[in-house]
Amino acid sequence: MKIEQVNESNKGYFKAIDTNTKAGLMTYSWAGTDKIIIDHTEVNPDFKGQNVGKNMVLEAVAFARKSNIKILPLCPFAKSVFDKNPDLHDVLF
């Protein structure tokens, strides 16, 4: 499975793709230049239980660490991933 990121001036998303099929999508908005707000996560029902959503959150964490930015997870799913994984708290806003 491959996760692609599209980052536009004030919005962006991470898209999980498996063999040319969209497995999931997680959207975010920029809040200034040093923070993104994850606002929505969806997973294709065919990929349920395969950690697609979690892997997109982990990709966002890697992006935040590399870019020295913070994440505010307003999406309930993304927030649950952060709640269950204290090792990700370094990027929380």
Rank of each mutant, 00 (worst) to 15 (best):
A16T: 04
K48I: 04
D18R: 07
I3G: 05
M1W: 00
A31M: 09
V81M: 04
N7E: 15
P73T: 14
T41E: 15
T33A: 13
I17K: 06
C75S: 05
V57H: 14
D46E: 12
N20M: 02
L74N: 13
E4H: 08
S29D: 12
G49N: 03
I37H: 01
D46I: 00
N20R: 04
K70Q: 11
E59G: 06
D83R: 14
L25E: 13
A23R: 04
I36P: 12
G32Q: 10
F82N: 04
F93N: 10
L25F: 03
C75E: 00
M56T: 03
Q50R: 13
D39L: 12
E42A: 02
I3R: 05
A62M: 05
E4P: 00
D83L: 12
S29C: 10
P45V: 12
I69H: 15
E8N: 01
Y13I: 02
L74H: 10
P76G: 07
K66H: 04
L58I: 06
R65F: 09
I37A: 00
N68I: 06
D90H: 01
K35I: 07
V81E: 05
A62I: 02
Y13T: 04
K15C: 09
Q5I: 05
I69L: 15
D83S: 12
I17H: 05
V43Y: 05
I69V: 15
D83K: 15
I36D: 13
P76Y: 08
Y28L: 01
D46C: 06
P45S: 02
I17V: 12
K35C: 14
L88E: 04
P86W: 02
Y13D: 02
D87V: 09
K11G: 07
D83T: 14
Q50A: 00
N55R: 10
G24Y: 07
I17R: 05
